[in-house]
Design a binder for these strands. Structure first.
Lengths: 160, 160
DNA sequence: TATTGTTATACTCTATAACTATA
DNA sequence: TATAGTTATAGAGTATAACAATA
């Protein structure tokens, strides 16, 4: 616990509370989404796989390095994730004639379809969990998450 | 995407935004915490392991079923997680004389120490990421997370 | 029969290390 | 040398299925 004098002085209590909230809240939601994706055997996408497809939808022609950075994993890990998606014919991986070290990644038709279905299902499950919350609460939840996201995108680069 | 007419009518846009925010934000933070825990080889606790220790600190003598429910995993998964922690002598698993099907889980001294060190390290890393945010932003982040947590605790039971 | 817990099996995620190929 | 990518290896997380022991 961070409990020295700084706690009082610069209201670090909130930081600590945030940290605790994050560690507690995140795994609960991951479970929710994982379970929902798993419940549909035809889709059968893990969360990292789903994110990979999202990335390629938004950044067609991206490289493996770009994928690694987006997913927040090493290039080796991204490479195996990519390989699995290629095997399942959800993405294509071709050589770049200009930069021969690089690969060019794209969604296949099947990839587009699976992405569409999976994200719909995941979002509907999340929406179900959030159903009944007042607009004010939804707004506050979203605001908090967006603030967190901005923090992470600017400072949480892979530290290795 | 959920983009039918309901979107406009009952402001489901926020729900959808929340869902997207969640899917995007969670992995970023998990990466942050995982990387930090991994950077200290002496600790070497995964996030589920850390949460398991937290649970036993707060609920000494808990059962394997209680652990599974807390972690949000099946009993089989909890059992393997428990086994690993027992092997590493961070927790003890003994029989309950009253209820002989049940096991009684507790932290060892080493478990207490590792928990203390790991949670300090994880929180400090998170605090570092959050450093510089205004008190207002911290408050809004925390508020959003607490709202999310309450949603999950009341409705996101294991669906199986 | 229902509950608690374990084990076997199979997959995925993830890292580090070692490697190849290209720039 | 530096960068892009792959492969081998190892360990953890996770589920389902099958099982044993107890209530």
């Amino acid at each position: 616990m961070i409990s020295d004098c700084r706690t009082m002085l610069i209201s670090e209590t909130s930081v600590e509370q945030c940290a605790g909230s994050i560690v507690e809240t995140l795994p609960l939601f991951l479970r929710l989404i994982r379970a929902e994706l798993r419940r549909h055997p035809r889709l059968n996408l893990s969360l990292p796989q789903l994110r990979a497809l999202v990335y390629l939808r938004d950044q067609p022609g991206a490289s493996a390095s770009g994928m690694a950075e987006y997913l927040g994993v090493t290039r080796a890990t991204a490479s195996t994730t990519i390989e699995r998606l290629v095997q399942r014919e959800l993405i294509t991986r071709t050589d770049d004639p200009q930069e021969r070290r690089r690969v060019v990644l794209n969604l296949t038709e099947a990839g587009h379809r699976q992405l569409e279905q999976a994200s719909t299902i995941a979002q509907e499950r999340v929406a179900e969990a959030l159903a009944g919350l007042s607009p004010s609460r939804l707004r506050r939840i979203n605001e908090g998450l967006l603030l967190l996201q901005s923090v992470l995108h600017t400072r949480a680069g892979i530290t290795r």
